[in-house]
């Protein structure tokens, strides 16, 4: 399969309260078409920054690309102007966020917000047709301007609205479209968010901790739904999560990040059966397992490093029980240990 996304040597700087830090530090990864990739790490490791970088929604002014490229279908997104980047958002690359309640406009019905996305696709397609010189189709109606109150779904998109909602397993579409976000359960909200993200049939969906705010049962349902969508629509998915257990349920491949860098990159079975980086091993031992009775959870000692200080060393070295001299002298590059299994650790290379 061809690769859809190639991130190479991406470094993102953040300005936080007067001091600069590298939220992403020469990150290189590639995502194949129709792949389900999970990016795993503790909060502050840069995984959300990675997602926001790809979709071009880094907070303006306080974060910027300092080097590297993000090649999507051969186009470097990192060098696009904001206006050009907008053409990719929604239609090519979509994103859903951790907190579905705050990610939905509280004063608009779910229907309004879904129709908005559907109409956006139609108007984009129309524009593309016109540009391609195709026979001019009637311009789809503009999304209605602000009106408070229960939105009515325009007839020309009613079918599509229902199809989108049934895709995310919302059966009672007619009822849900006229609901306000606060009237829905957390699971329903996240389903609605997914429907909106998929409304423009993007090739890539970035899901930033989509299940963290949900209870365990709903979490499992939403994960199952994402897997279904990938199989049914062929959408490539990047799942950003702090939870290895979540990643293990759905992902084909897992990338583990630590302190702005990728430390391990492997197929999901490979990673769980043969974790190579001490940090990954530590994360895995943190997962409570029902079958290993008596074995204790062993949290990783120490805490996250201060990213304001750039060091020429392995970031994990202060917490690592296998630390060697070389670990504090150089940054370990990603060594390809097996085919498709890379690790940034001197235990496994040089």
């Amino acid at each position: 399969m061809a690769s859809l996304l190639e991130v190479s040597d991406l470094t993102v700087n953040y300005n936080s309260r007067g001091s600069q830090l590298k939220a992403l530090n020469s990150v290189t990864l590639s995502v194949k078409s129709e792949e389900f990739l999970a990016v795993v790490g503790e909060s502050g490791c840069g995984k959300t920054t990675l997602g926001l970088s790809i979709i071009g929604l880094l907070p303006p002014g306080s974060a910027w690309f300092s080097s590297g490229s993000i090649a999507y279908k051969g186009v470097d997104l990192a060098s696009l102007r904001p206006k050009e980047m907008r053409n990719y958002r929604g239609s090519e690359i979509a994103m859903i966020f951790q907190e579905p309640l705050t990610s939905l406009n509280p004063l608009r019905t779910v229907g309004f917000q879904l129709v908005e996305a559907i109409k956006l696709r139609k108007s984009r397609r129309h524009k593309a047709d016109v540009e391609a010189g195709a026979r001019s189709r009637p311009l789809p109606g503009r999304p209605s301007m602000p009106s408070f109150g229960r939105a009515r779904i325009p007839d020309d998109v009613a079918e599509e609205v229902e199809a989108m909602l049934s895709l995310v397993r919302i059966a009672d579409a007619k009822d849900v479209v006229s609901r306000y976000p606060f009237e829905l359960s957390g699971g329903m909200r996240q389903r609605a968010m997914i429907a909106m993200a998929l409304a423009q049939q993007p090739a890539l969906l970035i899901a930033d901790e989509p299940t963290t705010a949900l209870d365990v049962t709903t979490q499992a349902q939403v994960l199952k739904l994402m897997k279904e969508i990938k199989d049914k629509l062929g959408t490539t998915i990047i799942l950003v999560t702090h939870d290895l257990a979540v990643a293990s349920q759905v992902a084909d491949r897992v990338i583990v990040m630590y302190a702005g860098r990728i430390v391990e990159d492997a197929g999901v079975f490979e990673l769980f059966s043969k974790p190579l980086h001490p940090y990954t091993q530590g994360l895995l031992s943190c997962i409570p397992k029902g079958d290993r009775k008596g074995s204790e959870l062993s949290p990783i000692p120490g805490s996250l490093p201060d990213l304001r200080f750039d060091v020429n060393a392995c970031r994990f070295q202060p917490r690592c029980k296998y630390a060697m001299k070389v670990c504090s002298e150089r940054v370990p590059p990603l060594f390809e240990v097996d085919e498709g299994h890379k690790v940034a650790c001197f235990l496994h290379g040089e």
Partner: peptide, 16 residues
């Protein structure tokens, strides 16, 4: 807010 970020993620123009 998150919902403005989500609206941008849809690809809406800054004006919209």
């Amino acid at each position: 807010t998150d919902y403005i970020r989500a609206a941008r993620a849809k690809g809406l123009s800054e004006g919209a």
